[in-house]
Design a protein around this nucleic acid. Structure first.
Lengths: 106, 106
DNA sequence: ACGATATATGGCTATTTTGCCAAATATGAT
DNA sequence: ATCATATTTGGCAAAATAGCCATATATCGT
């Protein structure tokens, strides 16, 4: 594997890892409906606002979202709409596993 | 969010998290070319075989791969071919980030 | 039965991740 | 200027993860 291939692999893994947390995945799903400010996510998620802010920075570092400050608020939006599609793919996989769903949710 | 929605979210995050490691992502990419035995992956990956075995069990627990023992060997294969597609999606996202690629690979 | 091969698992340590609190920063309102 | 609101960042402790070694287990060949 070349250095460039390795870098790409690591970057892809980083993006997938960023999606691999229930709270961050939820955020991405919410953002897929349209941009929103941090404060709006704080209302929808039961966690400290500092925790939410850190989760957003993980998504940003992974290249999945971008932010824009407008006034006091910072708005986040998905950089990659295809992310929504592959979350759907994962969902299909999970649902196909219906029989062992309980185990997977553990 | 209902309990079922929450379970689905957690299961999806678990699958994405499983993909969020360079070695496991590489394994999945290799498996997308066709099933193969653990011993074959051991040859392609520079890590202890016990480490490789554990990574495979993570993928299996997440519902992404299935295994079948044939003789001494255990063969693994992708349960979800769509996984390949969304890895392509992620790759597109990463490549779009070309300008900040170096930062993402860190 | 015995030794070799293939894989999984237990145990351990080092590293990373999470999530809360407190503090810092920036913007808007009065 | 002062204060409230919105967000980020530093710091810390608990929990989870990664990876190696040693060990256990199963299968094959002799």
């Amino acid at each position: 594997m070349t250095g460039a291939e390795r870098s790409l692999l690591v970057a892809k893994a980083k993006a997938l890892k960023a999606l691999g947390h229930p709270t961050r995945l939820f955020m991405v799903e919410e953002l897929s409906k349209g941009e929103c400010c941090v404060c709006s996510l704080v209302e929808r998620i039961d966690a400290d606002f500092s925790t939410i802010s850190k989760h957003l920075s993980v998504l940003k570092e992974a290249g999945l979202v971008e932010d824009e400050k407008r006034g006091q608020k910072v708005f986040y939006r998905l950089r990659a709409t295809c992310v929504t599609q592959f979350i759907g793919c994962i969902e299909t996989v999970i649902r196909e596993n219906a029989g062992i769903h309980a185990r997977l949710a553990r």
